[in-house]
């Protein structure tokens, strides 16, 4: 039987890339995303006996990630935004300007609205799943989603099409 660290390492290795991409879209910064994912993995390891017996450890991990992000945002000043560059080692690049456009658009949304968009349109989750992940009602998810999409349309305008086509 595998030990706790073995099982955890297997899970973390398989899931950390996806968690990182989600964290990057949420936080908008490479180093903050690293920090958020490491914090999430740390919390999962701390409670690994419970995590591994969960019906869906992936969903559990995502919930920890999103709630860690929202908790962190609550503790930071509302005006603070950290949108850093992406390391050269990160791999082949999309047009950096387009990428920054998306991040800056997301940055103008309240954290919960941003989390709703990331879960629904990056993680491809339903309204029900998103509500469960965020611990709020489906109505709240719908409202936030509508409001955030409207704002993204206003902020990005034609850039959104350019991003999608990139």
């Amino acid at each position: 039987m595998a030990t706790d660290p073995d099982e955890f390492l297997e899970f973390a290795t398989a899931r950390s890339a996806q968690l990182f991409r989600t964290a990057w879209l949420l936080s908008g910064d490479w180093h903050l995303a690293e920090d958020l994912v490491q914090t999430t993995l740390g919390k999962l390891y701390r409670s690994w006996r419970r995590v591994k017996s969960a019906d869906n450890p992936d969903a559990y991990a995502r919930t920890v990630l999103v709630r860690s992000y929202l908790s962190w945002r609550r503790r930071r000043s509302s005006g603070e935004q950290a949108y850093g560059t992406i390391p050269d080692s990160a791999g082949p690049e999309l047009d950096p300007a387009l990428r920054m456009t998306l991040l800056k658009g997301l940055a103008q949304l309240p954290p919960k609205d941003r989390a709703v968009l990331v879960l629904r349109y990056w993680e491809d989750m339903s309204v029900e799943q998103t509500a469960r992940q965020m611990g709020c009602s489906q109505g709240a998810v719908r409202n936030r989603s509508l409001r955030a999409l409207e704002k993204m349309r206003t902020i990005l305008g034609g850039d959104l099409q350019a991003l999608a086509a990139a």
């Binding site: 950390s16 990182f20 999430t40 740390g42 690049e93 999309l94 990139a166």
Partner: peptide, 21 residues
């Protein structure tokens, strides 16, 4: 599209996560 080219630092994330845990 914005995340497609990423190479997340998986090993670093896992090591750091385990250390924090």
């Amino acid at each position: 599209a914005a995340t497609a080219g990423f190479q997340p630092p998986t090993a670093e994330l896992v090591r750091g996560g385990l250390a924090r845990g």
